[in-house]
């Protein structure tokens, strides 16, 4: 890990600083390119409205970063979103609970889903990939099963008639800033403090870098690993609440089913190492916004159908990982070092 940050040259001041700078540059480039092509892109109100489309990715990927830093992976978050959504719908419609009570219960259910998978990963030593794969089948299946309890046809979804719930995604602070942006910033702040400014965050990194060293130095690594899955489950739950409210208050089991790839892409693009031990909340958030802007800007400025957006995002992912592999290749590093020396000699 140290070697890698050295290879990035003098740019690495903080954790992942160089990479974050690169992401900021990409973000600015996106604004310039899309803005030049179509000035509508730069309209603030439009941009803020478009944030609805990609905030789900931001919410979840921030906390999936935690899981990936411990060396695990979470591919079940998407299906937890659908489960949360349908649980809210059922609790509201069939049991007649207050919407906000239903929301709290549903988020707790989401946390329990994360805890179950986290338990298997941490205490039964099953690979994270397999457990969360099983989890994604289980939770999406449960969502369908729970939905079949309701009397309405499933494809229509459960419509929740509650003004306060609708207001959750329709309210705008000062008439411009949607409430969900504030929610995003709050979640980002919480995640940042947890990961980068607390003892708990240091433990997460330590478990990712070297689990046995963490265990020997008195960190309860299993509890730490399990807690990251609970956090990502809760984040998925909050996303489920958000998506239910956003899609005209309709609870559907299929909410979030397509998010998995975007979430992992955001984490990796944000500089998280899939082998664990490296990553940052800011990087992931920046990457998620970059992906979101591609999703928003491409159709608006280049008339590209939304269905084709898998191509640029897939390419982005491939190019970034290949580029990083090349940059950390010892032969390339040696060559760059030689060139630098030559430059220094020439300047003299």
């Amino acid at each position: 890990m140290k070697k890698r940050s050295f290879s990035l040259g003098g740019l690495t001041k903080g954790p992942n600083f160089g990479w974050n700078m690169f992401l900021v540059i990409v973000l600015i480039a996106e604004f310039i390119i899309f803005g030049m092509k179509n000035s509508k892109f730069l309209r603030v109100s439009l941009l803020l409205n478009a944030s609805n489309d990609f905030l789900p990715i931001c919410f979840i990927s921030i906390f999936v970063t935690f899981v990936m830093i411990t060396g695990g992976i979470d591919i079940q978050a998407g299906s937890i979103v659908g489960l949360t959504s349908i649980v809210i719908g059922i609790l509201w419609q069939e049991l007649g609970l207050n919407v906000w009570v239903a929301v709290v219960l549903a988020v707790i259910v989401a946390g329990c889903c994360g805890a179950l998978s986290g338990f298997f990963v941490a205490y039964c030593r099953v690979q994270a990939m397999v457990v969360t794969l099983g989890g994604s089948f289980l939770y999406s299946g449960l969502a369908l099963l729970v939905a079949s309890l309701s009397s309405t046809e499933m494809y229509k979804g459960l419509s929740i008639e509650s003004e306060s719930f609708r207001a959750f995604t329709k309210t705008k602070l000062f008439g411009v800033i949607p409430l969900q942006i504030i929610l995003f910033l709050v979640m980002l702040l919480i995640a940042y403090i947890l990961l980068h400014r607390s003892k708990y965050g240091r433990k997460i990194y330590l478990v990712g870098v070297n689990p046995s060293a963490a265990e020997y130095s008195g960190v309860n690594s299993r509890a730490v690993i399990m807690s990251t899955y609970i956090l990502s489950g809760i984040a998925a739950g909050i996303t489920g609440v958000f998506m239910t409210s956003q899609f005209s208050n309709t609870a559907l089991p299929s909410h979030g089913s397509t998010l998995t790839m975007s979430i992992i892409t955001a984490c990796v693009l944000g500089g998280t190492l899939s082998t664990g031990g490296k990553g940052s909340v800011i990087g992931t958030a920046l990457a998620a916004i970059i992906i979101g802007l591609v999703r928003f800007g491409m159709p608006l400025c280049f008339n590209i159908n939304k269905q084709y957006l898998d191509i640029p995002i897939g390419l982005l992912l491939v190019v970034v990982v290949v580029g990083r592999a090349v940059a950390s290749n010892p032969a390339v590093i040696a060559k760059v070092g030689k060139l630098r020396k030559k430059d220094a000699a020439g300047a003299r």
């Binding site: 390419l315 992912l317 592999a325």
Partner: peptide
């Protein structure tokens, strides 16, 4: 990508997955 460039396989194939799916839409 996986064997020569030594990129984690899950991530690399996730990327190609997106590209192929997009080509299929095309």
């Amino acid at each position: 990508g996986v064997a020569v460039m030594k990129i984690p396989s899950l991530i690399f194939t996730l990327g190609t997955n997106g590209v192929l799916r997009g080509m299929m839409f095309l």
